[in-house]
């Protein structure tokens, strides 16, 4: 971030954001204040700085479920996108049907249907088929999240593939590559650059959406805090701490994402490729072009 002359530090964006946050918390604690309420900040600090194994377990489960669901979702998305772009009509219809169903119904309904619906009807007994030692609600919940994610990723990957110039596929074919080779080696790597920013959004969402598995009683981060609150009853302190933990996860992810984008940007932008982590966290203004020849040198 650059500070123009005459612009004080308080005017920069991160400082403004931080100030806004502090004011908000002060307002929250001042307005409509229940005078008899005794804040138990010890609970807050304890669950943030010296979290119990229960909280750490919930944190781990949240990350694990989110990562597995997202990875499976991306694989389903690539397959779905290739299906939707297939020259064989039945495959196209199948992929279209999948996207239609999973984008068209609430995720909450999908989660309950996959676990309770399939389980009770005896179509799939989630408790009896452990996969990597994982069975029951966790398995069902992960499957439901992955299936839902796959539908959204299908559209994201499809958009990425369609954004690659048709001349790339033609050049690859003219060199003797098959459709598969051309897709894998030429088109998908270029599509990846387009796919990663929305994929980052998706995973950010996924980290938080795992908390929906509360209805299956999966002990992830939100459920852990919810249970703690059940015994301690300190919703203000505990859910504030819970929010901070989620914020930590999504923040770490934003670092990882900007690193990935930089790597994928190689060969595309001669100078800068996308916002760095500062820009990503606090938003960045358009930078002035310092050397126009650097930018127009692309052709």
């Amino acid at each position: 971030m650059r500070t123009a002359p005459g612009e004080s530090l308080i005017g920069t964006r991160p400082a403004r954001l931080l100030a806004g946050f502090v004011v908000l918390v002060l307002l929250l604690s001042a307005c409509e204040r229940n005078v008899s309420y005794q804040y138990r900040w010890d609970l807050f600090f304890k669950s943030v700085f010296t979290p119990s194994p229960l909280i750490l377990g919930g944190l781990g489960l949240t990350v694990a479920i989110a990562v597995v669901s997202q990875v499976v979702g991306v694989i389903l998305g690539v397959l779905g996108a290739l299906g939707r772009l297939s020259s064989a009509a039945p495959i196209r219809w199948l992929a279209g049907f999948y996207v239609w169903i999973f984008r068209g119904t609430p995720l909450l309904v999908q989660i309950t249907f996959v676990y309770f619906g399939l389980g009770v009807a005896g179509i799939y007994a989630w408790d009896r088929h452990p996969l990597f030692g994982i069975a029951g609600a966790i398995q069902a919940g992960t499957v439901a999240l992955a299936l839902n994610e796959g539908a959204y990723m299908t559209e994201i990957v499809r958009a990425g593939i369609l954004s690659v110039d048709i001349g790339q596929m033609e050049a690859a074919k003219a060199l003797g590559m098959t459709y598969r080779q051309a897709m894998r080696r030429i088109v998908l790597p270029q599509a990846a650059r387009i796919i990663v920013p929305p994929l980052g959004n998706e995973f950010n969402n996924m980290l938080k959406t795992t908390s929906l598995l509360v209805i299956l009683g999966v002990g992830e981060l939100y459920v852990t805090f919810s249970r703690l609150n059940g015994t301690l009853f300190a919703p203000f302190e505990l859910f504030l701490a819970c929010a901070l933990w989620f914020l930590l996860l999504t923040t770490i992810w934003s670092f990882i994402q900007s690193w990935i984008e930089r790597r994928l940007g190689r060969g595309f932008a001669p100078t800068d490729s996308g916002p760095g982590w500062r820009g990503r966290l606090f938003g960045s203004r358009l930078r002035p072009i310092e050397d126009p020849s650097q930018v127009s040198g692309g052709r």
Partner: peptide, 18 residues
């Protein structure tokens, strides 16, 4: 197609490769 090389009007180089 391996026996037939083609050069395109818009080059169509693979931008992600050197």
């Amino acid at each position: 197609r391996q026996e037939i090389g083609m050069v395109f009007q818009r080059f169509n180089l693979f931008p992600h490769l050197t």
